[in-house]
Design a protein around this nucleic acid. Structure first.
Lengths: 210, 210
DNA sequence: CTAGAATCGTGAAAATTTTCACGTATATCT
DNA sequence: AGATATACGTGAAAATTTTCACGATTCTAG
């Protein structure tokens, strides 16, 4: 354990949610304990890497036995600040915003989709999965009032930067963007991207052309 | 240039689509040339990194001038094997499969969504964005006949591994999975994941809890 | 035509990340 | 109880990735 002076590499943080997800699956399967080797096998990661990653935060395992699954889940949840649920705003009620609103996967994993915004007057006031679509005019006011820290961007690329500027100004600090464009944000704001085309293009490099 | 003996790092390959996307935006803006510095500024990447990445594949720039945007776009497209379009199957016609089918972003970026499959008899035979929903019974036959190499998985986690086994057996070699589970595939098959929760949980680490 | 500025490509250095391998603790089996 | 197997945590080594910094080329302005 040495988190006193060193800052923990972002690449390590990035793996923790993957560990957490696999551990939760193990819990569902009724598994009480596991080892770095077993977890690594499931994830295609070396056991040494898992041990080293976890050891950054503390000593969670026991020699000869391995890790107690639910204890490790608890620890990871604390490290990732998932003990309370984060309220999330979805911006854009198009096909994707729609799909995200229906997505069950946020539940019990730290997030509640709490608002969805759109510009289209036809949509405003209607409900998606019991969530009322709000007009974009109320964006800043709502986000500020509710102290919303996280947003998911599901708007067209052409307006993505403008919307980003607005939500950042309104206090959002973490953005998951589905718009196929690189966003400019202040250093205290995090953005992660999810453009399926980027990932597909990464894979085509390794494919044989016919 | 030294691609003769060395294999190119995957992390470099992964940045190429990002460069390509930004360069295409520049083209849209009517920009004819750019520099590693300008590109880096847009992407939040150092200019040295961009130069080094590109130099892995050839000498695409010119001292004093920089890069000719459309030439570089062409080169990147060739490197990433995007000169012809890849036909892609979407598995699962739920909310997400629906949204992906409507997504315009695949066009002109190397991909054509060509098939969508679902188990639900209510959906089979209906059309999404003019694409006919096929029954899962025809999955293997269609993929084999059409020599489909790429698929997007938009099915529930519980069936994701089984569906993966089927499409791999049918010849699919690259999978973009939206199911929140780690898939086991043979070494000659690539999988990339897109679970919004994983990305959100990565960001919460850096957020202040209130 | 010349001086100065811009910018590439790259070998070397620095930084980061992963893997190795071993001491130590725990559990199991006979 | 003792022997054997399991498996963590970790310092050191290895591998990978990023950054530095400079020679060389090209463009621009006077």
């Amino acid at each position: 354990m040495n988190s006193l002076t060193t800052t923990i590499p972002d690449i390590v943080i990035g793996r923790l949610p993957v560990y957490l997800r696999a551990l939760n699956h193990m819990l569902d399967e009724g598994k009480l304990t596991t080892s770095s080797q077993e977890l690594g096998r499931r994830l295609g990661i070396s056991s040494a890497q898992i041990r080293k990653d976890l050891s950054t935060f503390g000593e969670f395992g026991k020699q000869g036995t391995g890790y107690h699954v639910s204890y490790l889940v608890d620890q990871l949840r604390q490290i990732l600040k998932l003990t309370n649920e984060w309220r999330v705003a979805i911006i854009g009620a198009g096909h994707l915003g729609h799909a995200l609103t229906y997505y069950q996967g946020f539940e019990h994993r730290g997030f509640i989709i709490s608002w969805i915004f759109d510009t289209n007057p036809q949509k405003i006031g209607k409900k998606i999965n019991n969530l009322l679509i709000q007009p974009m005019e109320e964006l800043e006011e709502t986000l500020k009032r509710e102290k919303t820290k996280m947003a998911i961007l599901a708007v067209p690329a052409i307006v993505a930067q403008a919307v980003t500027d607005r939500i950042v100004e309104a206090g959002v600090r973490s953005i998951l963007s589905y718009a196929p464009i690189n966003l400019i944000v202040p250093p205290y704001v995090q953005v992660r991207y999810s453009d399926p085309v980027i990932q597909m293009q990464h894979m085509t490099y390794y494919l044989d052309k016919e």
